[in-house]
Design a protein around this nucleic acid. Structure first.
Length: 595
RNA sequence: GAUCCCGUAGCUCAGUUGGAUAGAGCAACAGAUUUCUAAUCUGUCGGUCGUGGGUUCGACUCCCGCCGGGAUCACCA
């Protein structure tokens, strides 16, 4: 079925050709929803056509409107205000449209064909030296939601994680645990593994600073002191041992990373995010070296006298960039080159999306440019989904100042608040305790996820703890509530023997508004997939929910005595419920059937 | 110093490839429940869209300058 916009657009071109004898190949026709203060459903801006018609906008609009009205059966009427041609689409058409999507539980969600393009999305990418925090939550939620959205427009999606499980930071935790841990484990301490390891990372930092302070007192420069501590030496020594494959070091490393993975799994499972494939840096960090050699022979890279390898990007307006250290060891760029190339061999993807914070924009610009210069065709399909930092009312999160919002704490807090508010409202007296616990989780996480996803990923966002636990207005629980209320309505309808049906030939304005809104759903998903922006879906769901609540308030459904009207209202309610459920699915937010 | 991003109501955010009188939520105030879930709905208050130019029939949107905030430019990750 052709979209209305297409029909209108084509008919308008026909009008221009037949009325004004115009060439319409290159004419761009802008069609937008009519603003609600005017009569009509779609609006064509006619200013641009006055050159073709040689008449003023009013007259041009009228002539085109008249043409469309007689030519297009779906156009019932039109009016022209200033240069705007407002078209009213026939109510019968909207009812037909409603019929066409009605009972489709997966409305808006396309199933990817087997031969559909593949898109790889990398997100999360934590270090294993400390637990996840609010920044990771934003990353996880964006990555997971974008994956669903991209899938819903018909792509095959491969969700991947790249865990930074090696390096000096992990050695710091290990060293501190060996020195002062006394053999403590998650079991013996009762601590979640990632938090336990994080505790030793913090302890290392504290002890090292104490040592550095003494060095400064002895006259060593402050900026050099930390690097000159014995503790840092020991940590570096441990890293060397790790790289040399020292058995004892590897064992401790494996054990402590295992604790961290168990911890991450719990957090990710609670958040509801997952991956198709997990990469570990310990397995990929050597990958890029060969590529560097190839690059030298291809003349893309060059070697400096000290042996370090560089690429000159000054012709591209960037700097010279190091791709391999003088001692032959990798830098970040080396690994990322190698990993990307390996992935391209493992999976045939058309796009590779990196969900990474905007502080790394330069890095990815360079990475993609190098891949392109190395001749990889798929480099054009690489995209850095660069999201803004999460800030707190008192400023940025700083681990040194202890202002980092821990992911597990935050999630627990949201769930607790959901419980308190639910109990306060006294809505679920007849719930089993397990059912109630599930509901608190659904609501608490719904609030958190929606709070984060409703903001454009590209923008930095302010996380105000007080506002995040607000469950009224433009919030996740508000959307969930509307869904639950629809479910309740449908349950009652069923009990009363009423069913949904579309047997009318007239509808109220608010009903038409809702159908039009539902009509926009697939379009919104497409836009949101193109822009990798879940906020478009979030804001859309909010819009339709707001419209529906007004409708719910103004129009009785079950109390309506006219059976046809009643059935129509049930049908509309059910359809809105489907849109809410599927929209929330795209955001990774669950919806409760009662709350 | 160079490059990039951001600046919309007291606060948090929307605002489609440039379109009509710039919209929501929160906060404040005033209302609506014998009626399908009031986590709801309605109303009031709130704006020189940072600022000055330019392009255009038309600019929050595009271009240039300036002001303010942030990020990046490591043989760190």
């Amino acid at each position: 079925m052709k979209s209305i916009e297409n029909l209108i657009s084509e008919a308008t071109k026909k009008a221009l050709a037949s009325l004004y004898n115009a060439q319409t190949e290159s004419v761009n026709i802008t069609i937008q929803p009519t603003r609600k203060e005017f009569e009509g459903d779609f609006t064509i801006t006619v200013f641009a056509f006055t050159q073709l018609s040689k008449k003023n906008p009013e007259v041009t609009g009228k002539e085109i409107g008249e043409f469309l009205k007689s030519e297009l059966p779906i156009v019932d009427d039109y009016n022209v205000i200033k240069g705007f041609l407002n078209l009213s689409i026939s109510k019968l058409y909207w009812l037909e449209f409603l019929k066409s999507i009605f009972n489709k539980n997966d409305y808006g969600l396309a199933k990817p064909a087997a031969d559909a393009p593949s898109i790889m999305i990398e997100y999360s990418c934590p270090n294993t030296n400390k637990p996840l925090h609010l920044g990771h939550i934003r990353n996880n939620l964006i990555g997971f939601s974008v994956a669903r959205i991209v899938e819903a427009v018909g792509n095959n999606v491969i969700k991947v994680n790249l865990i930074n499980d090696r390096g000096i930071h992990i050695c710091k935790s290990m060293l501190a645990w060996q020195k002062w841990g006394g053999g403590e484990t998650p079991e013996s301490s009762g601590m979640k593994g990632d938090h336990l390891v994080g505790k030793y990372y913090v302890l290392f930092d504290k002890k090292m600073k104490e040592e550095a302070k003494k060095l400064v007192a002895k006259g060593i420069l402050e900026e050099e002191a930390e690097n000159k501590t014995d503790l840092m030496d020991e940590a570096r020594e441990m890293l060397r041992k790790w790289e040399a494959g020292d058995a004892e070091t590897i064992n401790v490393w494996k054990m402590m990373n295992g604790w961290v993975y168990d911890g991450f799994d719990v957090t990710n499972k609670t958040l509801g995010v997952n991956f198709d494939k997990v990469y570990y840096e310990s397995e990929t960090y050597l990958l890029g070296k060969e590529v560097v050699n190839e690059g030298i022979s291809k003349g893309v890279f060059f070697k400096k006298p000290d042996g370090s390898v560089w690429i000159d990007l000054t012709p591209d307006g960037l700097d010279e960039k190091l791709v391999l250290r003088g001692d032959g060891t990798s830098v970040y760029m080396t690994q990322d080159l190698g990993t990307a190339i390996q992935r391209s061999k493992e999976y045939k993807f058309e796009k590779l999306v990196y969900v990474v914070g905007n502080e790394q924009e330069y890095h990815f610009k360079v990475l993609f440019l190098i891949l392109k210069k190395l001749g990889y065709k798929w480099a054009d399909g690489c995209y850095h989904l660069s999201y803004g930092m999460v800030e707190l009312p008192e400023g940025k999160m700083k681990s040194r100042e202890g202002t980092v919002v821990d992911a597990d704490d935050l999630i627990a807090e949201m769930i607790k608040t959901a419980e308190e508010i639910t109990k306060e409202l006294g809505k679920i007296e007849n719930f089993e305790s397990a059912e109630a616990a599930q509901l608190y989780k659904t609501i608490g996480l719904g609030a958190l996820k929606y709070f984060i996803l409703k903001v454009d990923p590209k923008k930095k966002m302010l996380f105000n703890p007080r506002e995040s636990v607000d469950f009224e207005g433009n919030t996740g629980p508000f959307l969930q509530y509307t869904y639950a209320r629809i479910c309740s309505l449908l349950r009652k309808a069923k009990d009363m023997g009423y069913s949904a049906a579309i047997n009318v030939n007239d509808i109220a304005q608010k009903e038409k508004d809702l159908i039009i809104k539902a009509y926009e759903f697939p379009k919104v998903i497409k836009e949101s997939a193109t822009a990798y922006n879940p906020a478009l879906v979030a804001n859309y769901v909010y819009d339709i929910v707001k419209l529906y609540n007004q409708y719910y308030h103004d129009y009785p459904v079950l109390k309506e005595e006219n059976a046809d009207l009643r059935s129509l209202r049930i049908a509309i309610s059910e359809q809105v419920g489907t849109v809410i459920r599927n929209g929330m699915w795209l955001l990774g937010i669950e919806v409760p059937e009662r709350m």
